[in-house]
Design a protein around this nucleic acid. Structure first.
Lengths: 255, 255
DNA sequence: GAAATATATCTTGTCAGATATATGATGACA
DNA sequence: TGTCATCATATATCTGACAAGATATATTTC
């Protein structure tokens, strides 16, 4: 079962990608400050020992990223607000647990405030949706099937009640970069009914569901402060689950 | 004073930029769905009537944007999570007050949580920085000069204490898209000493400073809950100032 | 006939050389 | 001194070619 782990095998990036990476890091590190002139295409061709095509594609990519601007006949320059044009998280920036938790804190901040806003703006229709999601979650626990769908459903109902599309957009963005801890925890536990592992998992879900109900109750009552408090507790536990999942994954990778 | 406004004057974009624009809109509109294969370079060359250089640079830009991926010998494809790779706010999305407030709420969420984190993680050095910023702010009020620099200084000290670079990155990103209300309010009021306007402005700054001191006090005391509460009050007022500034700008624009 | 192998062909990746165009500096000239 | 033509330089674009990966097709081999 100790399957041979293939070595890192950093598959050779394309020349263009390599050049992009070099230039980007020089810009982000401040080695090339905003306003500085990049080497001319010819100089880059010589120093990187690649063709002009590669250089031009790399510069075009950085230009699309908003990191540099070019002026015909003059040269290429580091943009004044380099990198502030868009907020992005690169997968390679999520290598350590600390980095992941930093992003989770960001998500937590927004989710908490979203719960508060939902408490102030929810309509009856939103509340109905939340209750439906809670019920689905309950059923999933009882039947021992994956409940992440119901979790998502509840999340969406709250997001809709908050009535701020920027919240939704940002959380969707973050969500696409974070591995939901459910995926890791549930995959290995569900499907073994009767085992103590499965029982433990069920009770954990029960706990999660209690957190959910506290949130919905506060939102329904129109109490933003209580909603934020409930959301904070729920999310703090979620971070904890992420932490465990990360360690689990590390163990699997090194065993 | 009604300076002649120059007409749009659509400066001719580069061929590459035009091609990027076309492809991007086709992707974002869903005309080219995730997983779809883009036309081959040769087809693009023919249909757009440009050289392969232009096509390759355009594709390289989209690749950098995370909208497409290419596989040598196979083709270029629309990325699965096209557009979810980065979070960006286009200036044209901040036209109405409602849209601005949505973004401000996002910022508020992060700033509040950042204040809470700062209360948990601050060191003496951070506290010293905050006090220095407060003092500078006091001096600015006394001398009647622009205090936005001191405001920024305090903000940075808190951000540093929170010890989460993602907070800083995200707030910097948002900050570059939002016009600080100080700029609008102070510009027109400062510099007219003795007037009632100036007096009112000074008392407003005094109020702001009181909010600042409450935040720093809570952070210094290591009380996250109090820090968040103080930050919330401060930021809620800040949103209010934004609201006023927006109306002021609208008035100026239509007068 | 089926499987393994070789080939053809299509696509992207890279290279080299050339022309076109925008910009800034230089120097002639009034 | 100020204006303008000229020139050098750098990016923008075009063209043609070859390399390398991927896939379909033909060929060989058993």
């Amino acid at each position: 079962m100790t399957q041979k782990i293939i070595k890192p095998l950093r598959k050779r990036m394309s020349l263009t990608a390599e050049l992009i990476e070099q230039l980007r890091s020089q810009i982000l590190s401040g080695e090339l400050a905003p306003g500085d002139k990049l080497p001319t295409e010819q100089e880059l061709v010589n120093s990187a020992d690649v063709s002009r095509t590669v250089v031009r594609e790399a510069v075009a990519a950085l230009k699309a990223d908003g990191l540099v601007i070019t002026r015909q006949g003059v040269g290429a320059f580091v943009a004044e607000n380099a990198g502030q044009d868009s907020f992005r998280i690169r997968p390679e920036e999520l290598a350590t647990l600390e980095e992941i938790i930093n992003v989770l804190e960001l998500r937590m901040a927004v989710e908490i405030e979203m719960a508060g806003a939902a408490a102030q703006r929810r309509t009856q229709s939103h509340i109905d949706d939340m209750h439906a999601a809670l019920e689905t979650f309950d059923n999933c626990i009882a039947e021992g099937v994956d409940a992440s769908g119901a979790d998502f459903q509840l999340h969406n109902a709250i997001a809709a009640a908050a009535d701020n599309p920027q919240f939704v957009r940002f959380l969707n963005f973050l969500g696409s970069h974070l591995i939901p801890p459910h995926d890791l925890l549930m995959k290995y536990d569900i499907g073994q009914p009767g085992t103590s592992e499965s029982d433990r998992q069920a009770s954990l879900l029960q706990e999660v569901q209690l957190e959910h109900k506290a949130m919905v109750q506060a939102i329904e009552a129109g109490d933003p402060q209580a909603a934020r408090k409930a959301a904070r507790r729920h999310l703090a536990n979620s971070v904890e689950r992420h932490r465990k999942a990360f360690h689990m994954r590390q163990q699997l990778a090194t065993s």
